[in-house]
Design a protein around this nucleic acid. Sequence first.
DNA 1: TTCCAGGGTCCTA
DNA 2: TAGGACCATGGA
Length: 279
Amino acid sequence: MIQPSITPDDNGYMIRGMGPFDCEAVLDGGQCFRWVQREGIWQGYAGRHMAKIRPMTDGIYLECSLNALPMWRAYLDVDSDYISAREVLSKDTALTELIDEYPGIRFLNQPFFECVISFILSANNNVARIKKTVQTLCETFGEPMPDGYAFPAPDILAGLTDAQLRSCGTGYRAPYIIHTAQQVAQGFPHEQLIGLPLDEAREALTQFKGVGVKVADCILLFSLQRKDAFPVDTWIRKVMIDIMGHKTSDNQIRAYAAQRFGEHAGLANQYLFHYHRTK
DNA sequence: TTCCAGGGTCCTA
DNA sequence: TAGGACCATGGA
């Protein structure tokens, strides 16, 4: 693959050679909940760092501080080879047209804790409401930053009451968030999950209250670079039953996807999810 | 008013 | 192991 080039100017960094980056699909397509778009510029936070992004022909223009550049480079998955992955998946009849239509679908590598909490909130919820609740959590319990709020730290959420969290719109998920924040604050070794077999990594994450198989797969895919994970939600369940031709269990859907899409199952999942959610 | 949303937990058979 | 009730909430 072509190595991306990063060229600084007075305000930010031109990142070229990483291929197209579909800001709407990536930053507002249900894999993260902290980005807003104003006049073509996307602004968002990861942890305590803020960035602004706008798409370019073969990459993005990124505004961020110099010391945060390596973090954003990892977060935006700049160095992964999406061209080869798309070439492989485009041979699949279920994906050929989708890959042509959406060349800029990619993954983010989000900070572990905010990804876990965001997807605990995603249970039986919708993207607009998840974004609203995450924003309220940040404004209420996150550290004020120059142009927004950081995501609340694990020890902060771990010390809250059920009522304090429910006042932010978490609903019945409040005790799940407190329990999970306590576990992470005590030191959860999430980096070790990256090298585990997928089922073992998934099982480790489902120890958290409020994290089932689907949410665990989202965390693995959107935070821990496990691009073989295949989250089965209501949209994916519908489209996979259609592809497979018969009603089946989520376990069988995951097994079928692993066999059909292999190491690129996660990217196939994103294409199917994005297309069928937005069509 | 009812259904649905990037579901999980708990109980029962 | 599978199936079903229940859980907060707001938009369609």
